[in-house]
């Protein structure tokens, strides 16, 4: 009775609505599909009629690691490459640019728009632009600049799947690196905007205090600004990991050249293809889910440990 006296009827209705609707959406759009994917990964089903669905136990997983293992390992490694490049190249570049632009340079708005421009385009469009304008063997910008447009002398940017960095039977293929370049190009702008917003909120008096104490530019960034932007750093890290794991569109519109499989491509190829193999596609999906969970668990553990220390 005490509870109901605190909240009026309409308050409670609002409360239920605000808690209930997102919960329903979350359960309906995240949990149910995720659980259905896990269940489907133990079946053999062509996606047409339910009566043709068959329970096959672990068969799909066994096949992934014995028959389709090359596709799987290549995809896992490629997802990892995207993560590495976004993390070690795109993110620091975005932060650096944001840091420089925060210094109220002349024409800063112009530079901001310039770097942010790729983010406005979808990665699919970015892919088309890079494929036809930059990578085309005969008339692409790169080969024209390098003077390699003659027949027999062209560099095939998207067609060369030999390894730049070999790791046993797998590695970083040259054409996958060519696909990572536009991803990085776009990600830099994304990070820049996020970081720029964060930098605006840094208390200027802290910077002044550090300057008076005689801190160098690097010390100022490393000791004062970076730690005070912890919430932004966390957002950037999460976004980078998610971008790396969900990468799909650019590879798909470039017709998935040999050597450029990633997990989401294997999922869609198995399920969206003409003869869908829902079971195998779901098994790929579960592996993608596990990769995400790995990161989430690691991240949450760090967060909780941080809280305990505080």
């Amino acid at each position: 009775m005490a509870g109901s006296s605190l909240l009026s009827k309409s308050d409670r209705r609002v409360m239920y609505g605000m808690v209930g609707v997102p919960t329903l959406l979350h359960v309906g759009l995240v949990w149910i599909p995720a659980i259905a994917t896990i269940l489907l990964s133990f079946t053999n089903w062509n996606g047409f009629r339910f009566d043709t669905m068959k329970f096959v136990g672990l068969q799909n997983y066994i096949q992934l690691f014995t028959v389709f293992e090359k596709d799987l390992y290549e995809a896992l490694l490629n997802n990892l490459w995207v993560l590495v490049f976004l993390f070690l190249v795109a993110t620091p570049m975005g932060i650096l640019i944001a840091y420089l632009l925060d210094k109220n340079l002349r024409g800063t708005a112009f530079y901001q728009s310039l770097f942010y421009f790729p983010v406005v385009l979808s990665l699919a469009v970015v892919g088309f632009i890079w494929k036809s304008v930059i990578y085309s063997p005969r008339q692409g910008v790169l080969n024209v600049i390098l003077g390699r447009t003659a027949e027999g002398d062209q560099i095939s940017w998207l067609g060369d799947s030999s390894f730049l960095i070999p790791l046993g039977d797998y590695g970083l293929s040259k054409n996958f690196l060519a696909l990572i370049a536009p991803m990085v190009w776009r990600h830099v702008g994304y990070i820049m905007v996020l970081y720029l917003a964060g930098l605006k909120s840094v208390d200027p008096s802290m910077k002044e205090a550090a300057a008076i104490d005689g801190a160098s530019e690097w010390q100022l960034f490393r000791q004062v600004i970076f730690p005070s932007l912890k919430p932004v750093n966390v957002v950037i890290m999460v976004i980078t990991v998610i971008e790396a794991l969900r990468i799909f569109d650019i590879i798909d519109v470039l017709n998935n050249p040999v050597g450029t499989d990633v997990l989401s491509i294997l999922v869609t190829e198995s399920i969206l293809g003409e003869s869908s193999n829902v079971g195998r596609g779901s098994a790929y999906g579960v592996i993608l889910l596990l990769s995400c969970l790995l990161f989430v668990v690691w991240y949450l553990r760090n967060e909780f440990r941080g809280l305990e220390e505080e």
Partner: peptide, 15 residues
Amino acid sequence: QEGGNGRTWQEAATD
């Protein structure tokens, strides 16, 4: 032609 995997059929037709 080398690098066939990176060439569209239209590009080869133009060649």
